[in-house]
């Protein structure tokens, strides 16, 4: 498309848009005047709900996250395995105690046999 054609298209678009502004209804113009006056007198109403929706959104998100975390970590697989760990430790200690007893018995028998051999 050459420059002349581009300029034609631009002119065509511009004239339609300009005309569409001239043809705005009285109601629309009136509405715009009201909105302008609200802004200039700081009476816009469109802000309070957006603020509250942000706070509300954050609150709802936090609540859902907290609930999800509670439900997730209350599941058995996320519980600390205290019982099993304790029983394993008990087993180790029990074995150790048994070994000590065996060693003591062994020492006693060695001593006894030495006494007997000595006469």
């Amino acid at each position: 498309m050459n420059n002349g054609q581009q300029e034609d298209t631009k002119r065509q678009i511009k004239s339609v848009l300009d005309r569409s502004v001239d043809e705005l209804s009285v109601e629309t113009r009136y509405q715009l005047q009201i909105r302008r006056a609200q802004v200039l007198n700081n009476q816009s109403k469109s802000k309070w709900w957006s603020k509250w929706s942000v706070f509300g959104g954050i609150t709802v998100f936090a609540s859902i996250s907290a609930l999800a975390a509670f439900l997730l970590f209350s599941q058995p697989q996320f519980q600390p395995q205290e019982t099993n760990m304790m029983s394993e430790l008990d087993a180790v200690f029990f074995e150790a105690d048994t070994n000590i007893e065996l060693y003591e018995q062994y020492d006693f028998y060695v001593w006894l046999s030495q006494q007997e051999s000595n006469g």
Binding site: S20, V21, L24, R29, L32, R35, R36, V39, L40
Partner: peptide, 14 residues
Amino acid sequence: LANFYTQVEQRAYR
């Protein structure tokens, strides 16, 4: 600002 808004508001609305 009021004068400025009067100039641009209709075009902005469109």
